[in-house]
């Protein structure tokens, strides 16, 4: 065979001929299969189950501690813990308050930090993308997974708190922060609003986590980085000399959920908190998308 012949690629075509490629069937455009698989991965993982057990343990500890501490230290300080004795619902609120500064962000950071970096770390990211999973779709499913986990974590604390609270203290009129008394049903509704607000705040935090997760192949590093961010933000928020930047801190409005427990509801801080969360969420989801969409996957 001459070099001239060899130089024509056409001569290399074997007798089989040309290929006929059928277009892949993409009929089920809105299949939730991948999302369900993602949820199975999140909620089936032993590490995450242990983390949720810790989240659920806090309201139980609070309930028993308050119930059996014996001495009632009057309601003078107006804290949630002392109010728990008035109505079981407050155990749920107390647990959310206690867990919001660290435990809940830690849980959300663990899931969101692991979202992309975890797949990159074990190498499954390249196989998912080659299946193919569009990068935008992968991010969307990953973020939905983070959101659903966040909802589950917050509701878990609330439900366990309310359950143990009602069992140990019973139901009765709920005293709101403004002093008004409302029925248990209204109290439950307010608690649900609080859960919703906390989920919104943590959803923005999860978007930050997802972004950081696209920057690294080390999920633990991403998680620690994001938790560190939450802690630093809270420290800065407590330094009064820095009050000028306080409204821009991602955690600044988190504890404003107390406003939902007044009568009437004070919407000022709450609406600021929601705007802050939406802005943070949009910015960091966009950043994650821009970063991940153009990234070379070498893991």
């Amino acid at each position: 065979m001459s070099a001239a012949e060899a130089s024509s690629p056409a001569t290399m075509v074997p007798a089989v001929g040309t290929g006929q490629r059928q277009p892949p069937a993409t009929s089920r455009r809105l299949s939730t299969r991948f999302l369900r698989s993602e949820l199975k991965l999140i909620f089936g993982r032993r590490r995450n189950i242990a983390g949720m057990a810790v989240l659920a343990a806090v309201p139980i500890i609070i309930a028993f501690a308050v119930r059996y501490s014996g001495s009632r230290r009057g309601g003078g300080d107006g804290g949630f813990l002392s109010q728990a004795t008035n109505n079981g619902l407050f155990v749920g609120l107390a647990a959310l308050t206690v867990e919001l500064p660290l435990f809940l962000p830690l849980a959300v950071a663990a899931i969101s930090g692991d979202a992309v970096a975890g797949e990159a770390n074990v190498g499954t990211l390249r196989y998912l993308l080659a299946r193919p999973v569009q990068r935008t779709r992968l991010l969307a499913v990953k973020y939905l997974g983070v959101l659903i986990f966040t909802v589950a974590a917050v509701l878990l604390i609330a439900v366990v708190g309310v359950g143990f609270g009602l069992a140990l203290f019973g139901a009765g009129p709920v005293t709101l922060l403004s002093g008004t008394q409302v029925s248990t049903a209204v109290g439950l509704w307010r608690l649900l609003l609080v859960c919703g607000y906390i989920v919104v705040c943590l959803a923005a935090f999860g978007a930050i986590g997802l972004f950081v997760s696209t920057l690294t192949e080390q999920p633990i590093g991403a998680t620690i980085g994001v938790v560190g961010l939450a802690v630093i933000s809270q420290i800065l928020d407590s330094v009064s000399q820095l009050s000028a930047i306080h409204p821009y801190l991602p955690t600044h409005y988190w504890l404003s959920f107390g406003d939902l427990l007044r009568d009437p509801i004070a919407t000022d801080q709450i609406s600021h908190g929601i705007v802050s969360a939406v802005v943070y969420g949009v910015i960091f989801l966009a950043a994650a998308w821009a970063r991940f969409g153009a990234k070379d996957i070498t893991s």
Binding site: R33, R126, R131
Partner: peptide, 25 residues
């Protein structure tokens, strides 16, 4: 590509299930 990569805590079958779930087709 560059060696196999799967989730270590899932079984072989569950790992394949996961990949199949990601495949829209």
């Amino acid at each position: 590509v560059e060696g196999p990569a799967f989730h270590p805590y899932l079984s072989g079958r569950d790992n394949l299930r996961r990949l199949d779930a990601a495949d829209r087709t």
